[in-house]
Amino acid sequence: MISVENLYHDYTGKEQYAVNDVSFNIKKGEVFGFLGPSGAGKSTTQNIMTGLLKLQKGEVLYESNSITKMKSEFYNNIGVSFEFHNLYTKLTGYENLKYFAGLFDVPTADPMELLDMVGLRADANKRVANYSKGMMQRIVFARSLINNPKILYLDEPTSGLDPTTASQIRQLIKRKKEEGCTIFLTTHNMFAADDLCDRVAFLNEGKIVAMDTPRNLKMKHGEKSVVVEFAGEKGIKKSVFFLDNEEDKKQLNKIILNKEVQTIHSQEATLEQTFIKLTGRGLI
C-alpha cells in the first residue's frame, strides 16, 4: 500500500544525509514501527511521506501514486500526530479540534468525544497555553484521528506520558488497527513497538539496519544476556553483556574478577537489546 524506495534526504546541501537510502513497504492494515535513536532520521522520513518535506531523492508511493503528484484530497485520508505540539495556544483544546475538523472535506469525528477518549474532557475549554506537555501530546494525538483517517502517522505518540496514559494511548492505537487503519509508528520506546507493531524497522544514522517482525528480530539477533550491576569509580554502574560475544565475555570476566559486583540478572532477548547489538548504541 505504501512503498518507500531508496529515499535520501539532505538538509545541509553538503551530502550529509539525514535519511540515507531507506526502503520499505507497509501493507494495508499493518502497524509498521520505525525505531531508532534521536537524530536517526525518523521524523524526516515521516515528513517526506506526508508531503510536509519536499522529496529530494527516491520515491514514496501510495498504491503506486507518487507523493509528489498527490492532490490535496490525499490529506482527507491521513492523520498525523507530530512530535512537536503544534497547536494554537491561544485557542482552547476544544477550539483547536473544532476548527481543525472544519478544514476537511470528509465527515469528521466529534471533538468532544475525541477529547474524552484521551482524558481531556474536563480541560476542553482551557486554553492550550495552560496545558501540560502530556496534555498537549494527547490532544495532538486526538487531532490526528479527527478525519477518521485510513493511514495514521504517529511520531512519538507516547513519549513523555505517564505509564497509565501511555497505555491508554496504546489501547487507542490498537483500536484503530482493529478498525483497519494502516499505521506508521515512530518511536524510541521498544516496549510500545513490541506491543503494537506487526513489523519494525531499525533506523540508525539514516540507514535501516534491520527490518522484520519483533519476534523474528529477537529470535535472530537477540541472545541471552546478563545485566551486571557493579561498583564503578562513580557509584553503581550497569552494563549489558551478550553471552555469545567473545569480547563481552572477556569484559564480564574482568568485572567479576576485579570489581565489586552487586547484582547479576540474566534476561530474555528484548527488542532493545537487539537494537543495541545491531547498532552498538542505545536508543536514547
Binding site: T50, G51, L52, S72, E73, F74, Y75, N76, I78, V80, F82, F84, N86, L87, F100, L103, F104, D105, R143
Partner: peptide, 8 residues
C-alpha cells in the same frame, strides 16, 4: 504544520 496536512 498542522494546517499543511489538511486539504485546504
Amino acid at each position: 504544520k498542522a494546517y499543511r496536512i489538511t486539504p485546504t
